[in-house]
Amino acid sequence: MNKTIVIIPARGGSKRLPGKNLKLLGDLPLLAHSIRYAQQHTFIDAVYVSTDDAAIKEVALSYGAQVIDRPEQLSGDLEPTVSALKHVLETLTDEVENVILLQPTNPLRPETLLEEAFRKYNQGNYDSLFTVTRNHQKFGKIISDKFVPFNYEIGQRSQDLDPLYFENGLLYISKSRLILSDIILSENAYPMVVNHPYALVDIDTQEDFDYAEYLLGKVRSEK
């Protein structure tokens, strides 16, 4: 029984940054950062990459992940992530209890984050958990050419703002029964706060990739 598995969804098509999942970040393909990260944790029973791409499959296998071939109908731009996760669970013969989603576009994660998150998930008996980061910006809407503050009043200091948080994508943990019901996060999902520069990395463009390279280089130079 694979009680806890990691699934890394990695499509071949990327319009804004072609081939991004295999693009070298440091000395590893982008995808391999998440595979290696998962492999460091003894409580993970298996690491699966879901892909529709032969080159991604080859790289995933070479780094020790197992590969689930994703059907074309589940590989479109508008297809939700949960459909790829559900397909993996439906393909496996083993019973799975917990699914950890690691997105290849979030390749940099604090070393102890997954262990801490999984401990919190188990101790709190949650059915799902995800990571969030506090945002300190002043947001507003533009209505009829007028700026209308959303989370503050004009003249209010940034440090006095009501806290707002964003979903940073570093990791998600969910019961497999939720995913089989087409849900990754339940209404009671635990929001784990992560305040770390890595939480600002979500690679969709070349600029995002450049920033990830900068952060990775900075961390390595400090070791």
Rank of each mutant, 00 (worst) to 15 (best):
R177A: 14
T131G: 08
A212P: 07
D162I: 11
N135T: 13
V194C: 08
R119S: 13
S176G: 09
N188D: 15
Q159V: 12
R157Y: 11
G155T: 12
G124P: 02
L171V: 11
E187K: 14
I173F: 03
D208F: 06
F150V: 01
A189Q: 10
E116G: 00
F147V: 08
N151H: 03
S128A: 13
G169F: 15
E187V: 08
L171E: 12
H196G: 06
Y152C: 03
S186V: 07
L161M: 08
D145T: 00
A117D: 05
N168D: 15
Q206N: 07
G217N: 14
L164W: 07
G169P: 13
N151R: 01
S158A: 14
E167M: 05
P197L: 08
Y172N: 12
L178F: 15
Y152P: 03
T133R: 08
G140L: 03
K146W: 00
F147Y: 13
P149S: 05
I154P: 01
S174E: 10
K120Y: 04
L129R: 02
D182P: 00
V193Q: 09
M192D: 00
T131N: 08
E207I: 10
Y172K: 14
L185C: 06
L170F: 14
V132W: 04
I203G: 05
V193F: 02
E187F: 09
L164Y: 07
K120V: 11
Y165F: 15
Y172C: 10
L200R: 14
N151E: 00
Q137D: 12
D204F: 12
S181F: 04
R119N: 10
V193I: 15
A199F: 05
T133W: 02
E187G: 07
L170Q: 14
L180E: 09
D182N: 15
D162K: 11
V201G: 01
V193W: 02
L129I: 01
S144G: 02
I179L: 02
